[in-house]
Each structure stands twice: as structure tokens, then as C-alpha cells.
Write a protein that binds this DNA or RNA. Sequence first.
DNA 1: CCCGATCGTTACGGGTCCGTATCATTATCG
DNA 2: CGATAATGATACGGACCCGTAACGATCGGG
Lengths: 117, 117
Amino acid sequence: MPLEIRPSQALRLWRQVHLDLVRDGQADLSARQTAILLTIYLELPPHTVRGLAQQLGVTKPVITRALDTMGKLGLVTRKRDEFDRRNVVIQRTVAGALAVERLADLVTERARELGGG
Amino acid sequence: MPLEIRPSQALRLWRQVHLDLVRDGQADLSARQTAILLTIYLELPPHTVRGLAQQLGVTKPVITRALDTMGKLGLVTRKRDEFDRRNVVIQRTVAGALAVERLADLVTERARELGGG
DNA sequence: CCCGATCGTTACGGGTCCGTATCATTATCG
DNA sequence: CGATAATGATACGGACCCGTAACGATCGGG
């Protein structure tokens, strides 16, 4: 069941949502951070630094730093894996789930408002 | 003619496109820069620093810096307004138009691949 | 038990961005 | 003219991020 959308509609949707994110001020997430956040909340756990780095095609420090920032914002948490103490398991938070949900509603609403152009 | 999309589809689309942008490496645009770029290429000219700042709800230095960066990337150009030399008119470029077009195709393609979930 | 492999983190030098305040240039109007 | 307003750019101190390299902690096989 593919989603029918024309390139011009896609651009207007992309622009409007980014405008909303910038104006709400809640948007200080880079493209990388957004990709990380949504991967954590959409893909099945467990999530590790190494796994995320592989999925995004970036180095591990990039993930570590992004998790630092998002941790300060309360969007994710880290926990040692007790079965292999080298690993760190990234966990979801209530605030993170709410932020993701808000983004989903924002995109959905803006898509609904799109005209035919 | 609204676009029908469910929140879960919106999130998967958002995630997949951001993953593509990160992986392509061509994505070093922040949310603000993306909003600026798409505003320039979707809205009718002329575009000025002040006008963009108002539309985004940010200060003028934010626009100036973003234009500096995007100028280095060849995505936009600045030109003095000859009729009011205080103004600077932001102009589109071939490279910028191509980048916008690529983004449109990317979003469209990823939307097409969405399942019903 | 020890040595190599693996994990996530940190250090480093360099770059970009932020918000506020200030600046030079140009236009406008008395 | 001169004063005021408006525009975009710049300076500043602080924060974040990048890529590379190195690090300490932990596991696992010989």
C-alpha cells in the first residue's frame, strides 16, 4: 500500500514541518540526531552504540556525543548491559516517546493540509 | 486534496529519509538551514535576510550565518538590491535547485516504499 | 592466566553555530 | 543638509560537533 505523493508536495511538506520545528524552538536536533532518535524508537531493542553507528554509517564517537546531548534533553537513557558489561544499552524515555509522538502528529497534520500542487 | 498518512507511516518516512541524508553525507544542513533553503526555492522571490528571519522566527544573524554556509556550498547566492542598496536579495543557484530536487525525489521515493503499518 | 579483540568513552585541534550587542551603509523625512 | 530609521554584517564568549586517535574496561580463546 504505497503512499502517493508528488515531489512538489513532498517539498512543501518537508518545508512546513521544518518551519514548525524551527519556530517551536524544540528542534535543536540535527539530521543525525533525528535519525538516531527515530531508530531507537521505531526499531526493536536492544540498541547499542556500535549498532547505531553501523546503521547510520558514522563513527562511534558521533553516536556517543549524540547520546550525550539527547540524554541531557531527557530523550534517551543509557544503561550498562549486565550480561556483557562492555555493552551499553540505549533505552527509551517518556519524554522521548512524547517528542516522537509530537513529531508524528506534526508530520501527519501538515500532510493533511497539503493541497494538490 | 489532503494527503492521507498515518502517524506511524509519517515516522517511518521521517526516519528513512533522515537515514538516507546522513548516509549520503550530503546532509550537513541543520533544520534551520533546511527551512531556509526550501523557503528560498519554494516561495516567490525576492527573498531578503529580514524576510527570512521573520518567516522562521529567528534573528537576522542566524540567517546571515546560514547564508554564509550555504553560499560556500554553492546552494544560494547573495546580491545587492540596486533599488535599495540596504537590501540583499538571495538568489537561487543551479546546484541549489539540484539539491532541492534530489530531496524531493528522495522523500517521494521513500514514501512510495512505505507499507501500510 | 594472559593476550588479543571488542566495547564505549575521552582527548585533541579545528570548525560551525548560537544569542546579544554593535557596526557601517543606505534610505527617508523634516 | 541633519537626524532618524532600517538593513545586513560583524564581534564576542560560549557551546556543540566533527574525524582521528588513543584510552580503560571487559570478554574470550589459547
